[in-house]
């Protein structure tokens, strides 16, 4: 993370997990991204890549200063509609960092095998399996091949 002294506290982790559940909520088959235990992975990735680290730090800082959260004893103590309102305010006021933060949550969520199974994605490396596709069939050129050459002579 860009400010090397900054490390997440247990309270930060609780907030991060709660926020992740709002970004990617539970679906029929799976709990939300936070409840799936992905906050740790998000923290790890943020520690490796500055732009995600900075986004995470700024979003958590902003949430800790959010007035309703302070009044209620922290973001995690807010009602769900209050939490969503707080996030929407950040989305409007901190566009760049919020965007990166959402990317961070999506990256860790959609790299999880459980999620791959849910969405029907073949998990694992792309190689060496690849995909079978029928070889090129030149009969599909029948129509376009009949066209007269139209490149511009010079």
């Amino acid at each position: 993370m860009p400010e090397s002294e900054w490390t997440m506290t247990e309270a930060d982790r609780l907030v991060l997990s709660a926020v992740m559940d709002l970004i990617v909520p539970s679906s029929d088959a799976l709990p939300g991204a936070g409840e799936m235990g992905l906050a740790e992975k998000a923290e790890e990735l943020a520690g490796q890549i500055d732009l995600y680290g900075e986004a995470l730090r700024r979003i958590l800082d902003a949430l800790s200063l959010e007035p309703s959260a302070r009044a209620e004893g922290g973001f995690a103590a807010l009602e769900e509609d209050q939490r969503i309102a707080a996030l929407k305010a950040l989305e409007s006021n901190m566009v760049k960092h919020f965007d990166k933060f959402v990317d961070l949550v999506y990256i860790v969520y959609y790299s999880d095998e459980r999620v791959h199974e849910k969405v029907g994605w073949r998990t694992g490396p792309l190689q060496p399996r690849g995909w079978e596709l029928p070889p090129f069939d030149p009969t599909i050129l029948e129509t376009v091949s009949k066209r007269e050459p139209f490149w511009r002579r010079v």
Binding site: L22, Y106, I107, Y110, S111, V119
Partner: peptide, 21 residues
């Protein structure tokens, strides 16, 4: 892949929240 879809390189970012899935 799924990350590319969610983050929206091809079709804009998928919205977060209730409509996400």
């Amino acid at each position: 892949g799924p990350i590319s879809t969610a983050c929206g390189y091809m079709f804009g970012r998928v919205p977060w929240g209730a409509d996400h899935h």
